[in-house]
Design a protein around this nucleic acid. Sequence first.
DNA 1: GCACTAAGTTCAAGCATTGAACGAATGAGG
DNA 2: CCTCATTCGTTCAATGCTTGAACTTAGTGC
Lengths: 379, 379
Amino acid sequence: MTTVDHLRQVRLGNLRTVLLALVDRPGSRADLAARTGLTKATLSNLTEPLLANGILIEDAATLAGMGRPSKPLRFHPDGPVAVGAEINVSHLAVETLGLDGETIRRHLVPADIRDTTPDEVLDRVAELVREITPERPLLGVGLAVPGVVHDGVLVRAPNLPKLVGASLAGGLARRLDLDVELDNEANLAALAHLWPRHLAGEDFVHVSADVGIGAGVVLGGEVYRGASGFAGELGHVVIERNGVRCTCGSRGCVERYAGLDVILEQAGRRHLDSLAKALKAGDPKALKAVRDAGEALGVGLATLMNLFDVPAVVLGGSYAVLHEHLSVAVQSEMDSRVLAGGERHTRLVASPLGEFAVVRGAAGLITRRAVQQPERLFA
Amino acid sequence: MTTVDHLRQVRLGNLRTVLLALVDRPGSRADLAARTGLTKATLSNLTEPLLANGILIEDAATLAGMGRPSKPLRFHPDGPVAVGAEINVSHLAVETLGLDGETIRRHLVPADIRDTTPDEVLDRVAELVREITPERPLLGVGLAVPGVVHDGVLVRAPNLPKLVGASLAGGLARRLDLDVELDNEANLAALAHLWPRHLAGEDFVHVSADVGIGAGVVLGGEVYRGASGFAGELGHVVIERNGVRCTCGSRGCVERYAGLDVILEQAGRRHLDSLAKALKAGDPKALKAVRDAGEALGVGLATLMNLFDVPAVVLGGSYAVLHEHLSVAVQSEMDSRVLAGGERHTRLVASPLGEFAVVRGAAGLITRRAVQQPERLFA
DNA sequence: GCACTAAGTTCAAGCATTGAACGAATGAGG
DNA sequence: CCTCATTCGTTCAATGCTTGAACTTAGTGC
């Protein structure tokens, strides 16, 4: 690190600050200077190459009252975009996301992946990506999978065993000739609540159930992944040490009481929609199934809160759908079991993102990287 | 942040790097340059004020073979020191620690604090601190308490209820006319394994039992405290959701099965020493009590590992003493319940620090702050 | 038209590190 | 004892990014 390097680091850091401010909302140089704490001079200097490279665009002057009108800067409508893709047990999804945080297009197709080979899956994903890709520079692809990812490899995926160990990121990268980054769906769903917009602060846990139960843990504005990608495995938190056997080899895992498959079975339903309708109609069996699951989930979340002590829990995926009937039991268990809960400062909220949370997070992974490492934008 | 400020930050960062290298071991300017990646010129420049202010001292030249002999730099033997102090249920302890990481003096006195007023406790602590303070500049005092600390206040301490809410840091600071920093004993015991020497890597959990069970969680070389200081409350992780009632209001908390009081009661012993002897003698009741506790602790730790995914667990406090008889059960539960455990990459080790771990961490809190914020050394 | 206001640009100044050149201190070899 | 090789430590001009003040630009209000 020479001093020159240090100075370059300062510049890149400031560039990041400016881009972050712009993700928040457009603004003139003077406005951005005020918001970032930098000077107008620095802003002219920093934004010049961004404008020259088609990252930003200068709007027509706005007539804002007295003084010389300001020309707002915002992300160029033909500027670079990121693609998110999701491989899941029963569907595939893709989404394109601009640096400004706006979704450009998105698409979700039902698909039974369970018995498909990695190559077939990747072919289909590549095709979907090509279909929604606009005529704009591409930053890369974020790829979400329902399983544990470590060092870019899918190391554990109880519901998609055929994909474990396959070169998913590499395979898709080759097909599309793009950078591909692989990550766990739980982490990416959590990221979607953090970037490009803060929906639940900088410290929270996002919990969702599809086939398994996964928690995406966000600490200090960063997704916490653990030493080997196994962090946040809420599904295998033990709530009854001599309880029901779990496929993982343990006993009494939360997943065995609050997993979606368990809820559906207890409620005597085949699909989430059907369950939702039954709940709306007040079906006692459905209500009890959800309440029981809520209690188990609440115990698991209480344990999680006693270890992580984060101020908010976001219920996503199927849990967001069931939120209304689930929350009471969850909250009640947490209230009586979370130490820090006395002041009731644990917010329990439903995710507003719906079924696109994961792909959005996958795309966000890429736009976020571009903003945090602005040098990538000039490549 | 002006550029001048930025450059000052660079300087402070380099100063920190150099000090960190010196905590590791002494070295000449040339050696330090090689180890830090900075140039000899920069090292001359950075160390000059440290020498002038009596932080460092230049040893006599060492005859190391060919070439001009180097003059090693190390922390000045009369340089600033930190004091650690511990208030616990049955003892008080103090320790003085130099910037080089060497203990100067330490002292532990039995004391029943349970019914003592905050003022009386602080008077005694202040007296102990004065007794061991050497004739050297003082950086401050780290104060350890068995309870949850948030924003410098003891918010929860089931075993020392009289101290809750009292102005402990302020009270001691006034008595000694020094900076006092308050923290939880579990966090500080963990810190002692991280600073001034790495004893268990940069990611680990330190678990200890005195009256309650506390885990100090270290992530990326930093103690993780959570949003309100309640992180790492392993004692209140639930292992049987309909289990034994806990004083915290929950049921089936680890503490109710693996707390030291429970172990002693089950073993029919009054004190840890007596239990240790019984174990050595092969007393079946004692062995069973410890094994049972180990199983419960193992279940709780498995849950913790599935959430934090750290590569090492350190058993400290009473658990370190019982380690030999406790580990088998703990390890066995973890092996069958930790997802990432397949490759057995979770190390379970006993703390080498003994009963001084907490005070050492308390003192380390202060020396660490001094090194990480070198500007404090010139005040 | 003229004063006023605010946006954006230009430019010399300031500073920590660098790398090369230099001075200092010793061992090896004759 | 003297010279050469070797390594340590210091000196100094050069580098490059932000700054703040001065300046230019482009509007409004009267």
